[in-house]
Nucleic acid binder design. Structure first.
Lengths: 122, 122
DNA sequence: CGGGATCCTGCACGATACTG
DNA sequence: CAGTATCGTGCAGGATCCCG
């Protein structure tokens, strides 16, 4: 049932080594803001302003650049409506939803154990 | 079956907000090297030197500091043998193994989709 | 409202050398 | 062998202003 690094390396020896695409994806998704944005979006389509409030502490610049990389990665879909004032909505793409299906259980675990972990290291 | 951020916020409204312990854990685990070290260790107990080779591209400094935070977080266990030359072994703690059970499926997904994602954004 | 452009700063991270 | 100590630096990320 469980997968190991050795298993993954069995399929592709270069996996998770330096310069490997997996590293790039990891950097995008696991960066400081990537997951938090994806996590917010897993609640459903959201406008820029709402997203900004839901990802507490993010700056406009980082929200913009994070969304751009995630969109380029095909994990997030951006929809702009030709209105005044402008309205732009962000949503997970099918690929993004697929990813979050793997991430959410992890987040749940983190939510459950974070306090313990931080206490220990204090 | 699926969990959402709203669900998690239902248990604790502060979850994943700024300054929340979850953010700290995320920074430790999801940082550039955290996961990669944990991933390598999920193959089993390893000595420092082996670990350094398995986590391709990591510097000694980063390996040392990453291991120290992960050990302080209670995710990694360090065992030093009073020998000459010194021998030190690192292993996942039970907590760390529990965590990796959630992380490995994610890594498998990333391994499977990384190429697509990077191609798209190129 | 939803960003882009610009400037600035810290610290995450790397390289090198040294040690018990 | 398994680290620490020291020194540099690039770039992630914050603050601010502006624009369609």
């Amino acid at each position: 049932m469980s997968v190991s690094l050795a298993d993954l390396r069995g399929r592709d020896p270069q996996i998770f080594t330096d310069g490997c695409p997996t590293r790039t994806v990891l950097d995008h998704v696991m960066g400081k803001w990537g997951i938090l944005v994806l996590l917010a979006l897993s609640d459903g389509t959201q406008r820029w302003g709402v997203l900004r409030r839901n990802v507490a502490g993010i700056s406009e610049k980082m929200l913009a650049s994070t969304l751009k990389t995630l969109e380029a990665d095909g994990l997030v879909r951006r929809t702009a409506y030709p209105e005044v004032p402008p309205r732009v909505e962000y949503a997970l793409s099918p690929l993004g939803r697929d990813l979050m299906q793997r991430v959410l259980p992890l987040m749940e675990w983190v939510a459950d154990h974070a306090a313990d972990i931080v206490d220990r290291s204090a």
